[in-house]
Design a protein around this nucleic acid. Structure first.
Lengths: 213, 213
DNA sequence: TGAATTTTGTACCACTTCGAATAAATATAT
DNA sequence: ATATATTTATTCGAAGTGGTACAAAATTCA
């Protein structure tokens, strides 16, 4: 007699859905990811999700709303991955490398071919003429900067960085490194090369070799 | 009686062109710049250039060929600007800031609104499914990396950097900084903020404050 | 069993897209 | 003048676009 949760147990009235909204959104994301927002047609998304267009509209609204939902979900997943990589008590350089490795496994998550970052690969182009996408971009970058900066602040307190190190400046460089990896992945640079790039960047950022006179 | 140059003086046979290919290409570039490759129609380009579609075809070939030409011209202009900024005998930090200032004045060259980098804003999206664009991207990035690296090598020889500084690693970071500026400009970050970002990055890259213990 | 409800699938619509075919216009050469 | 050469302008067409209307299908409730 215990009603487990409201509406979790009781089946809805009409014809049941033939798709799972979660996986449908993931498939739609994959489709946008390859060709970008404008070059992706609703027919392609319908084919990828196995839904037909009216079902897409019922589930997500129009193409724009669907893309925004995909973008938001990607940010959430992506930022969580970075945050989790930076968490824990690893040394600074290892924590940074964990973040870049996490990013790389997203950028190379497609078996057939590397595709870089969904945000960099699809949202940046649209940002100029689309306020909502532009705002999502700005907010996401701020969040990533903040995550890096928090870690650098901890590092400075722990003595991993000199007392006069600038966490915000280092965070920008860490984000920039993330972005250049995303871009270069889409330009065809192989994963191993990007990993080496990340290692070099980490070395400089941590100040172990960045030589001034 | 002196024939100045072959075919420079002698007018061609038929109806003269109503457009200047140079400015037409520039206008087409501006159009792609705003909305990207896929979202820009030939009609919009025709309107922007004042040409009609058949004339566009006669002059540049199809949409794809036109875009490739615009992309090549942009790379040439953009790389020349960076190279010129890095040339001369300015101190390293000033030379780098000159490069970023040059980039900023390109990214903010439109009076109405900032638009970031043409490459980052339009080519990265298409790179995945378009080999020629992808190759152009890869080559352009290599060229920019090489330009920065050459300057860092000189800096090391001149004693502006420590003897064990890694010019290639620093060049990647310098390129990454350029790219993050390009991306953030398109995301709406104001110019002054990007200039400050560049200054911070230069400070770290030059090793004046990048503090390790 | 039959009514109610929700989703699916087909078909359709108005519009845009790229590309080309064809005719008109404008110049030079003879 | 007339022929020739080249560009411009109009028009067309076939395919694709996002979005919607509507009937068929599949389920629950009474």
């Amino acid at each position: 007699m215990v009603q487990k949760k409201i509406d979790t147990e009781s089946k809805p009235r009409g014809r049941p859905r033939a798709y799972d909204p979660q996986t449908a959104l993931r498939r739609a994301t994959d489709t946008f990811w390859r060709a970008g927002y404008s070059a992706t047609s609703l027919d392609e998304i319908a084919a990828a999700t196995g839904m037909n267009r009216p079902s897409l509209y019922a589930a997500f609204g129009d193409k724009h709303a669907l893309y925004l939902e995909a973008l938001a979900a990607y940010w959430q997943m992506s930022l969580a991955a970075t945050r989790e990589a930076l968490a824990g008590d690893h040394p600074l350089d290892q924590a940074l490398m964990r973040a870049y490795e996490a990013a790389l496994s997203i950028y190379f998550s497609d078996d057939s071919s590397p595709r870089g970052c969904f945000v960099i690969g699809t949202a940046v182009t649209e940002a100029l003429e689309d306020v909502e996408i532009r705002n999502s971009l700005a907010a996401g970058f701020r969040a990533m900067d903040a995550d890096f900066e928090a870690r650098f602040r901890i590092a400075r307190e722990k003595g991993e960085l000199k007392a006069d190190a600038d966490p915000a400046a280092l965070a920008m460089l860490a984000s920039a490194t993330m972005q250049t990896i995303a871009i270069r992945a889409r330009a065809g640079v192989p994963r191993a090369e990007l990993r080496a790039l990340a290692r070099n960047a980490v070395t400089v950022i941590c100040g172990q070799r960045a030589g001034a006179i």
